[in-house]
Design a binder for these strands. Structure first.
Lengths: 189, 189
DNA sequence: ATTTCAAACTAACAATTGTTAGTTTAACAT
DNA sequence: ATGTTAAACTAACAATTGTTAGTTTGAAAT
């Protein structure tokens, strides 16, 4: 079976539509049509349009939070931690290309869970910042502005959902390595 | 005077709202309220909601196209061209923080001008790719996957609109240099 | 004083929105 | 056969959407 439950099917179908046009531009009738049913029938499985968005975003945000916890408490070097973070983003994104679009573009349409999401995101950024700052202190990383490093790295990782799908025939493991090397060593010869 | 024309004021006000909630979630009444007038009054100055979005996005896309033309036909080194492209993005973004949000997130809601926009974007990407490939050929850049370099660099540059506004007290010139160095040399010591 | 005109207004429209209520269908267990 | 249940349906709702038509305002030009 492709989906665990009918609700799960609704969520995944919605994520596909949300990626194309954004949460606000997708109607319940759009979602229903994509599933071959009527809009009212969706409400046998979900409570609101909002709930669909929350399920997509929060479950992904929690996956990142969970994995970050493991990485930050490991005793690997900072460079190794950063490599693991690259792998984390590539991994989650390649398995959730559509959901990641909502996470990145439609989080502001969360309502009840907006504060929770923002907290998770803030904590994640702080954890990544700490790893970078420690890397500079311990002479693993170049002594540049950590905010710029944080911004550049996160921008690339957060945009993966746009690019990974375009490179269908991609070896994920190899791509992860290439991207890690690039972020760490730059493009200069 | 802060605005050239009333139409210009509508466009810039709309861009602020579009950045917060996205094009689809902003209503003509929202825009009108932000200007202290009624929704119907907007139509004395603009023809449709669509038109507002087009004006925001297309003018920016054309600025990028125009400047890229100058850069690509110069006889600077590839590294220098890439530095100029970083400066181009930082420059346009710092002057158009709100419009850049629409360019990056709401281009799919263009209708009549969608094809034109996609052509401009494709050409821009191709120009940047050519610079990178030439840089590799001429041993200026490391011999890595040019697609990954293109993706990483563009992701960072396209996300500037999210980050620049958070660093209000930022020296633009210095930031441009830091970012160039980072993208070129990486974070490794 | 009168005319002109940009730019606001009120009122309304047809379509679309998320959602609810109540009903039907059809597969399964008793 | 009967009852149960998940999951679909039809019909409708109140609110909101972008937009239009026609009118009023008020300052500048004549």
């Amino acid at each position: 079976m492709k989906y665990e439950t009918r609700k799960d099917e609704i969520i995944q179908t919605s994520a596909i539509l949300f990626k194309k046009k954004g949460y606000s531009a997708v109607t319940m009738r759009d979602i229903a049509k994509a599933m071959g049913i009527k809009a009212a029938s969706l409400y046998n499985h979900i409570n609101s349009k909002q709930e669909i968005l929350s399920e997509i975003i929060i479950s992904l945000a929690e996956q990142f939070t969970e994995q970050m916890k493991i990485i930050k408490y490991s005793d690997d070097s900072c460079i190794d931690k950063l490599k693991q973070i690259v792998a984390l983003h590539v991994g989650i994104t390649s398995n959730n290309q559509f959901g990641m679009a909502s996470l990145n573009s439609d989080w502001m349409h969360l309502e009840a869970e907006l504060d929770y999401y923002l907290t998770l995101r803030k904590n994640y950024e702080n954890d990544l910042r700490s790893i970078i700052v420690k890397g500079i202190q311990e002479d693993e990383l170049v002594d540049a502005n950590p905010e710029v490093m944080l911004f550049s790295m996160l921008s690339t990782l957060r945009s993966l959902y746009i690019w990974l799908p375009k490179k269908e025939d991609l070896d994920i493991q190899q791509f992860t390595n290439e991207l890690s090397l690039l972020l760490i060593n730059g493009i200069n010869k």
